[in-house]
Amino acid sequence: MTEAFTRQPCDAVLCDLDGVIRFFDHAEVIRLERDAGLTAGSTAAAAFGPENGTALVLGQITKKQWADSIARALAERIPKADARGLADAFTQTPVWVDPIAVALLREAREHCTVVLVTNATTWLDDDLAQLGIADLADDVVNSARVGSAKPDARIYEIAAERARATPDRCLFVDDRQANVETAVRLGMAGVLYRDSEDLRESLRRFCPTANRHSTD
Rank of each mutant, 00 (worst) to 15 (best):
R72E: 08
P167H: 00
P208V: 06
L104C: 05
V97N: 05
A189W: 04
A40H: 12
P50G: 13
A163T: 02
L74N: 02
L186W: 09
T215Y: 11
E197K: 07
E157L: 14
F90E: 03
M188T: 14
P79N: 01
V115F: 03
Q177E: 14
D98S: 09
A108S: 00
D25S: 11
D82V: 03
I30V: 13
Q60N: 12
A27G: 10
G187E: 01
S69T: 13
G53V: 02
V180F: 04
I158G: 03
E197T: 11
R31Y: 10
T122R: 10
R212Y: 06
D139L: 09
A159Q: 04
K64Q: 14
I21Y: 07
G49P: 06
L192M: 11
E157C: 05
E161F: 07
A120W: 06
P151E: 07
E51D: 14
A137W: 03
E107W: 03
L58N: 13
H111A: 13
I21A: 00
A178P: 03
R204S: 12
L58R: 15
A87K: 05
D175Y: 04
G85P: 03
L199P: 00
Q177P: 00
D25Y: 14
I158S: 05
V191G: 02
S148Y: 10
G59P: 09
I61F: 05
V146I: 12
A36W: 15
I155P: 03
T215P: 03
L131G: 00
S143D: 07
I158Q: 08
G59C: 10
A159L: 02
F24Y: 11
V146S: 09
A108G: 03
A210R: 01
E33Q: 09
M188C: 14
